[in-house]
Nucleic acid binder design. Structure first.
Lengths: 248, 248
DNA sequence: CGCTATCTTGAGAAAGATCAACTATTGTGG
DNA sequence: CCACAATAGTTGATCTTTCTCAAGATAGCG
């Protein structure tokens, strides 16, 4: 996620540490302008679980996995949208990911799930036992490699989100989110996408409040960067959204 | 990371979605109080790379991997402390992890490293080619499994940090950080640990400013929850640190 | 068509950031 | 071993962003 944040914002700059210049060059590129990895490359396991497991229908809002549930299965979203999240006892919650058709979750679990999974919309999901995954991994070298790539991608995606949550402003978070979603969701004729999740989910994904999410979006609309009618959103000026357009 | 945050704060609570109650129970535990996974279980690969690769000495502050470097190697910290981080062009930076002896980084890379790695202190690191890892994975089923567990742990660790960055207050972040570090670093006789990283690194790890880190720590000291003299820190009241002691 | 959810908007409060000294610690050369 | 410079850490005053609380507007659903 957030792979589609402005590539130009990620760049090596001299550290604040004096010792930076010392000793032998271990990194192959000393001072190098880096760009983020390609936006959408988490399809390593796409189609790999076809035919295994059993599919289930879940209603909007229904819990698929509870925090603390025994982790014996992983899931692939066939249709609809799912969120993984952790809830704190005081009501705060943090969404880890939004999962769309083809996305898999719960692969990383061992022991018990630390994050719950809930249906954002009515959804169809395929449940696959982790022992099946184990088996596939042992017997199919190509699957093993794809699985490994998939896990590595999850790590990178989570770390990208760390940067967003730790160091981005509300406006930047929203911009990154809209770019991410417009890349992952199917756009209609007019280039608009229907966000499956509500403002509250977006807020919990970005570490903001509902009100801040709403205000930032309204602001982008006012400046003609996006158009929005409820959950229907179109990006009008991708350039501006992806650039440092320090709103306000 | 943050595995040692108050387990009691992580709990399932009824969602805000009306539809929560609907349909069949897919999750084995409906309403369940979940606790976080065991604090320190990232040792899956500990010792597995002994004998492979070559070790290198790096000076304090030296860059080991640059943002955008070709990802052909991973690294194990033998001695010292390393940080992985991403720098934005405007100077903001986000530390992803602090790595201590036995910890491995760069395993998740493919293509190019999105995060830089820099020595927090003078350090000894072992460099292992990723093709060597590939080879080991293919030839040693036990290694493959350990590697997979390791990657899964990294995912969970990153997601735990997502909760901290997105939904915790400055005081909670600091408390969680101190608990994490006191668990990972060797304590002296008096139970004190010497933090290898400076306040700026801590700030970049937690998404705060240096000043806020300093203030929170001073506050904890004033309330006799910790003792601190520069980078030497001892936890005096672990209970209080791990509980909702909403400072301020 | 009305009810409920969700979303938007405004005003005030608060957490944390910023700017600016000032203090302490560490490391170095005389 | 001390003095000094450099780095790191603390503290205070003020400002900004985001949150909170509250009300009103919209939209979706039965």
């Amino acid at each position: 996620m957030f792979a589609s944040l402005p590539a130009s914002t990620i760049i090596y700059s001299p550290g604040r540490h004096k010792a930076d210049q010392e000793a032998m060059p271990l990194s192959s590129s000393g001072t190098c302008i880096a760009k983020s990895a390609s936006p959408i490359d988490n399809g390593y396991l796409r189609g790999r679980l076809d035919g295994v497991g059993s599919s289930v229908e879940v209603a909007k809002g229904q819990e698929i996995v509870g925090q603390g549930d025994r982790a014996d299965s992983c899931f692939e979203v066939i249709h609809g949208c799912v969120r993984t999240l952790q809830r704190l006892e005081d009501g705060r919650s943090q969404v880890s990911e939004f999962l769309l058709p083809g996305d898999i979750f719960g692969l990383d679990a061992s022991g018990e799930h630390e994050f719950a999974a809930e249906a954002v919309t009515a959804a169809t999901i395929r449940r696959v036992r982790l022992c099946t995954i184990d088996l596939l991994t042992r017997e199919d070298a190509a699957f093993e490699q794809d699985l490994r790539h998939h896990l590595c991608y999850q790590i990178k995606a989570a770390r990208r989100r760390l940067v967003a949550l730790g160091r981005m402003t509300a406006a930047e978070k929203i911009a990154g989110f809209l770019l991410e979603m417009s890349g992952r969701l199917d756009a209609s004729e007019q280039g608009a996408v229907k966000l499956p999740m509500c403002r509250g989910d977006i807020a919990d994904y970005l570490g903001l409040t509902i009100e801040t999410v709403s205000r930032c979006m309204t602001d982008l609309k006012r400046r003609n960067v996006i158009s929005l009618h409820g959950s229907l959103i179109a990006i009008l000026d991708r350039r501006l959204l992806a650039t440092k357009e320090t709103l306000h």
